[in-house]
Design a protein around this nucleic acid. Sequence first.
RNA 1: GGCGCGUUGGUCAAUCGGCUAAGACGCCUCCCUUUCACGGAGGAAUGACGGGUUCGACUCCCGUACGUGCUACCA
Length: 505
Amino acid sequence: MKVRVRFAPSPTGGLHLGGVRTVLYNYLFARANGGDFVLRVEDTDQNRFVAGAEQYIMDCLNWCGLIPDESPEKGGPYAPYRQSERKHLYADYAEQLIASGHAYYAFDTTEDLEKMRKDYRRDDNTNPQYDHNIRGLMLNSLTLPPEKVAELVQNGTPYVVRIKMPANETVMLTDMIRGEISFDSSLVDDKVLLKADGMPTYHLAVVVDDYLMKITHAFRGEEWLPSAPVHVLLWEYLGWKQHMPQWAHLPLILKPDGNGKLSKRDGDRLGFPVFAMNWTAPRTSETTKGFREMGFLPEAFVNMLAMLGWNSGSEQEIFSLDELVERFSIERVHKGGAKFDFEKAKWFNHQYIQRTDDATLAELAKPYIDMELGIGNWELGLLSKVVPLVKDRCTLLPDFWAQGHFFFTTPEIKEEAAIKEKWNDQKQQFFTSWINILTAQPTWDHAVIEATFNEELPKNGLKKGDVILPFRIMLVGGKYGPGVFVIAEVIGKDETIKRIKRVIG
RNA sequence: GGCGCGUUGGUCAAUCGGCUAAGACGCCUCCCUUUCACGGAGGAAUGACGGGUUCGACUCCCGUACGUGCUACCA
């Protein structure tokens, strides 16, 4: 049987780190097993629908290079891939469940449900559920005579369909990551399967669509584990038990400080991205930063995510996507959640920058230089000289500007104190006469510049250490950067002399 | 409250009964570099707790604690 996996997001906002990791594991598993990877949009909640979110999700997958084989955009043999467009399919299955006695109509209003939760709340049961103990007390096709039910349905009274959870059964589930898990069916509530608006809930839709789309392995977040028995029973009640996919409940990605699931808020609070790419909420126009815009390379982002919850068992940490396909195994995925570490994420990006060829880096860095200087306002050829000089100091793409800005424009002197404090006549004299020597130089390369620099030192009773730092600050503005004579070579004779004069007057 | 899941350094983690418990990030020291990085050499830092099982337990079992997830006509 052909392996088929699916990523099933609901289009409600930005794509979270954890979501991308779920996509990745799906993708790796599909590729490794010669299977299909499908993107199915779970837009069954009309209240939470956010315009543009679906397109955004696909853009994120594109950026990461995790392209689905079948999707709403691309189509495929099991189209449509949007649950809202599959709405008509679900009611029949709900009816089938009612007919076989595994589900029932419920006519309780929101107020009825609130009242029930209030009335039955006790200290040892702070959250009463609509379950096998309670359903006999509610307004549904189990408590109402058949004629009454038929009448209510016919005259358009809103109703939902609920699963009838059995009492005292042990529901078993074999998880690829966690092994055997069991639940007591008495403790699981009668989940709504079909909502009053005719849309299925996740519980029904996921089972029906996984069946119809012939999904063989289902990866999802650990937060779904408690509702897994509902899904297992649905597979059984619908008569599809032998087709049920193998489950893998992935560990959560936790916030770096304290505990709990990593949320968008944590990123805002601690200054790192949580979404793959910038996301602007259409309603509020509020933008949340993404890894892409912060200057991550998609390969580094994906590699980092792969290692958050999985490792190969070897000491290797840097893997290309192809290597991951080859090495990844779901059995080696951790059970416990992992705290997200932004420092480690940056380290991955630094590694990838060092391994990327200079021409590609120049392409990647270009937009950030454009952002500072304006498109077309600077010499593109200069960037290819700068990239190899500053790349080891760059962790994120904007660092190419931070580390190399002085190649493009005359920098502001930020370390003036370091020059002024120990300034004296000898130094003044040194630079004054050195400028004249430089001006007369027919060739301009770092070796020549350094040679003249060295020759001029003793004439003024100076050592290299006395003036090399001041010279650096003249050119760079601060105490950082590549070899100072190389910088002088790259910015050119006129600019070098200009920058020295600017300081010595 | 109930139920599920989890628990090796600050963080990510190896180990599938033999451990003097890898490696990476971060941190610290030193070297390299008359800058900052890169690179190199070191260092501090770990099995939640209590019982079993076993010649031997980080590894297996039980309990406790702690954490976390769910407990919606949201996914």
